[in-house]
Amino acid sequence: MEQSLEDNVLPQGTPDSFLLGALAHTHLQDCYQCGKCTAGCPVAVRMDLAPNQLIRLLQLDDSETALRSSTIWECVSCQTCSARCPKSVDCAGVMDVLREASLAQHKAAKPQHAVVAFQKAFLDNIRRNGRLAELELIGLYKADVVWNTGRIGVLFKDAGLAPQLNKRKKLHLLPEKAKDRGVVERIFARCSARCSEPEKK
């Protein structure tokens, strides 16, 4: 039987034509485990599951393990796996789908919390400002990591860079914002309808 991401991974009852369209040409069953994705992956060594293993899990209908893996948050989205796949499996695209589903289903791997926190803080920042406010992003990201992991050290990380950036006129205390932030807010609202499922206690 053809396994599809739609059946196995996406939150139940919430098909997203955009997401499925992006992966329309990816057929998980096509993967014959040549390992080219993993061989070219610059961060495979850091992952608990290599990219080809991740695809194999999905073939075997075990999306649960895939969604809880460190792999999807270690991935740097360099697109090498997808570019090199001889069967046109868009492995980097699959990673995106898995990340989105992992977050929506509250299954993101705890040790990778910093990456999750950064991406969430980034999007929240854009929702508020329309454009990235770097210092605000760094502040709120660090606060999230300290609050959720207790890693106080993150507060001082790269603090020494601030004066160096300032000297080079690369720090902006008053960041630019988009003028029409209303439209940004509405775009986010229209795109976030299916985003999160209630957390099961």
Binding site: L19, L103, F118, I187, S192
Partner: peptide, 25 residues
């Protein structure tokens, strides 16, 4: 005029529809 952020890695990682909508704007 009045461009907005494309959402970068955060958008394509966490919200595919948004990762198309922001640059579409």
């Amino acid at each position: 005029k009045d461009w907005i952020c494309c959402g970068a890695t955060a958008a394509h990682s966490l919200n595919h529809k948004l990762s198309l909508a922001l640059p579409a704007r």
